[in-house]
Each structure stands twice: as C-alpha cells, then as structure tokens.
Amino acid sequence: MSRWMRRCLKSSSLALLCLAGSCASPYRSLKPAGPPVVSAARYQPVFEKALYRCVVDGRFFFRRFRLSGVLLLKRMPDHTTRAVFQNEMGFSFFDFEWDDRDSFKVNRVIPQLDKPAVIATLEKDLRLLLMKGLDYGSEQYYRDDAATWHRFTLDKGYAWYVEENNLLTRIENSGKRRVITMGLSGPGQPGSLPGGVLIRHHRAGFTIQLHKINQDASE
C-alpha cells in the first residue's frame, strides 16, 4: 500500500472518529447523582396569569419566516390551565387547555396551524415549560461540574431540568440527541415562571422567544 493511501486511510479513520464523537450523546459526561437530591417538582410553576411577548423565527424550504404575538397563560378556577396565543392585533391563533390531570385538548386553532405535527410541537413546548405530564417516579439525578440534571422519562425520550445554585436555568428534551433546548432567564426560583425563555428546535430549525410583559396597558 502506498504511503499516500495509508495517509488517506488514516485521515478517513480520524474523520470517522470525530463524526462518531459528535454523534455521541451530549449527556455522556454527566455522572449519576443519587439522593438526597431534591426533586425538580418544586420548580413546577404556580401562577394565576402570565403574559408573554412571543416571537417565532424559522426557515421553511429556504424561506425565512417570523411570527409574533402575545401568549397568555392562565390558571382557571376549575383548575384547568389555558394557553392562548394571539397576534398583536388581537386575532387568536390557538387556545390550548390542560385539565387538572394534565390531559390536553385544543379549544381552538386557526386552519393554518391545525396540523397534528404543529399542535404536537407547540403542546410539547408548553408542557415542558409548565412541567405538565411528568412521571415523577421516573426522575433520575445527574451532575456535571456546575449543575444538577433531573431526568424524566417521556413516552419518547427524556425531559431534562437543569438546576444551578437552586435556580432552574435550562430545560431540554432529548432522544439520542438534543431535540429541544430551552434557556431560561430570571427569576428561576422554585414555583415561578421564567422572565424569558429561548426555545430552540434543533431538528425542525426554528426558535421561539418568550419575554414576560406587564399584564396589559390598563394595569
């Protein structure tokens, strides 16, 4: 075998190794951490009403799109939770509802969004953020240098809640790879809704930004 071929083979092997490394689970470096770690259940937000400015940025068939509006989250007297998204001019895009057992239903959605994949994606984002439908019996604890990672088993893949210095800073959804990551900003304390959320859909290639705003101009 010529020297040139050997060099080529060596380079290809190295490239394959690098590729294999990049495909490896991003959670490989985490170390299991047993109890006494407090459950992430304490971070489930308790709220009556919250209003977020919402911006969706993405790309579909090489065309960029941007959709913005206002997201209202409200806990109703009958213990249902509602998520209503409307554009700036007040036109409603969807109205989602979870009952007290976290069972989900769509009250209203505009025809343009009325597609199973779209509804499932939006519902999953909100469910992860509001910590609904989690199997707390499946919770496992991991650690890295800076954070505690709480892992919950979902129907498909896992939900990760990342805690640093007693603040919830990140939520992730993964299979073999990261599917969704949510960066959370302020206040992050147990029981509170975040002030800001940046949701990245790694496979679908779009982001959702949420920024908490005052209830409305009349308050």
């Binding site: 209202l72 409200k74 509602r82 209503v84 007040g90 409603s92 101009a217």
Partner: peptide
C-alpha cells in the same frame, strides 16, 4: 385595543 377572551373571562389591553 382590548382583546376580550370570552371563555377565559379575561382581556388584554394595548
């Protein structure tokens, strides 16, 4: 602008 959400018995004012 007042958005009246009938089922939520709520409104959003801008």
């Amino acid at each position: 602008q007042t958005k009246n959400l009938s089922l939520l018995e709520d409104r959003i004012v801008a």
